[in-house]
Simulated scan of single mutants.
Amino acid sequence: MSDVTQQPIRFLLSDMDGTLLLPDHSLSQRTIEAVGALREAGVLFSLATGRPPKAMLQQIQALGVDLPTAAFNGGTIVNPDGSLLVAHYLPATAALTALALFTDQPDIEVWVFSGGDWLLKDPYGPMVPREQHGLGYPPVAVESFEPCLAHIDKIVAASNNTELLIELEARLLAKVEGQAQVSRSQPVYLDVTAMQANKGAALATLAEFLGVSLEHTAAMGDGGNDPAMFHRAGLSIAMGQAEEAVKCQADLVTGANTEDGAAQAIERYILSSV
């Protein structure tokens, strides 16, 4: 953490899973009320997540979000009416490199997100029920990912073997440097997206769209894909349960998501600056 000089915050961009959402993917009433208080105070609010756009709809409605939102770690920015503001696809060469590395690895399930669908080869993998519960819709089983290579939003290596994911993250970064973003959005998910698909770029794009200078923005998150926006925001807040490598890159650390840490941060650090 660094020393913080508090600036009035006009726009807060927040991660979803592990930040706003409880472990069962629900929103607490305190979090809903805290986001409502932001709106009443005139502070703009939106979401940045590794999720696909249609897996954000329930939370967008519950929180009353009426601004563009960033999906796929910023690879896709969607207007409130569902139209695309920004879309960045993973280069086919980087996609093939990632798929080749992940295929046949022990304990690894490979998922591809393309054209609004969640594609996989094994619909009975042990990680599938968790993801289906979180997304709110089922996967589509395919024999090959080749037909969608030109329009891949995200590739995910999913596993409860977190040490293996850390190893694969380092190996893949060396292979696709300058071609793709590679980060663990959660300890059990390793995401591969387009180079331009990162939450820092999404924050800058949304801030410019909204007419807010970056020094008057705040970012809040818990995963390895969140420091990209921490480094661009005027104020950055990490969740209490985040890994130390994430927390040390934030200005402030709030409570865990199981303790309404997002609401705590909004009340203590954002609303107090208005």
Rank of each mutant, 00 (worst) to 15 (best):
R39S: 00
Q58M: 12
T76H: 09
V43P: 08
L38S: 04
M56S: 02
I60M: 13
V78Q: 15
S26K: 15
V78R: 15
A48S: 15
T49Q: 00
F45H: 03
P53I: 05
A55D: 00
V35G: 11
I60T: 07
L63N: 01
A37E: 07
I32R: 13
L38K: 00
L63A: 02
E33D: 15
E33Y: 10
Q58C: 01
A62I: 10
A48P: 04
Q58L: 12
M56F: 03
G64R: 11
T49A: 11
P53G: 11
E33S: 14
A37R: 07
L57W: 12
L47V: 11
A34F: 04
Q59F: 12
N73S: 15
S28W: 02
L57R: 14
V35I: 14
A71C: 11
N79Y: 14
M56R: 08
K54N: 15
I60F: 06
N73H: 12
P52G: 06
P80H: 08
N79P: 07
L57D: 14
A55P: 01
A55N: 04
N73D: 15
T69W: 12
V35T: 06
E33K: 06
G74V: 08
A55S: 09
N79M: 15
I77W: 12
L63W: 03
A34L: 13
V43L: 13
G64I: 06
I32W: 07
F72M: 14
Q58W: 12
G42N: 05
R30D: 05
G36E: 05
G74D: 11
P52D: 12
A62H: 07
T69N: 04
A71H: 04
G36A: 01
A55T: 10
G42T: 05
T49L: 10
V35K: 09
A37D: 13
P80G: 09
L47Y: 01
V43A: 02
T49W: 08
R30P: 02
L47P: 09
Q61H: 13
T31A: 02
P80E: 11
T69V: 15
G50Q: 10
A62Y: 01
P68I: 11
K54W: 11
P53F: 13
L44R: 14
P80I: 09
P52C: 09
A62E: 15
D66N: 14
T31P: 01
S26Q: 13
F72D: 03
P52L: 03
T76V: 14
E40F: 04
G36N: 05
E40A: 10
L63R: 06
A71V: 05
A70K: 10
R51K: 09
A48F: 12
R30V: 09
G64Q: 01
A62P: 03
F72P: 08
L44E: 05
T31W: 05
D66E: 14
R39M: 02
G74K: 09
A37N: 05
T31K: 01
G50H: 13
A48Q: 06
S26F: 05
L38G: 00
L38N: 01
L38Q: 03
A37G: 02
R39F: 04
I32Y: 03
Q58F: 12
N79G: 02
R51Q: 12
R39H: 08
T69A: 10
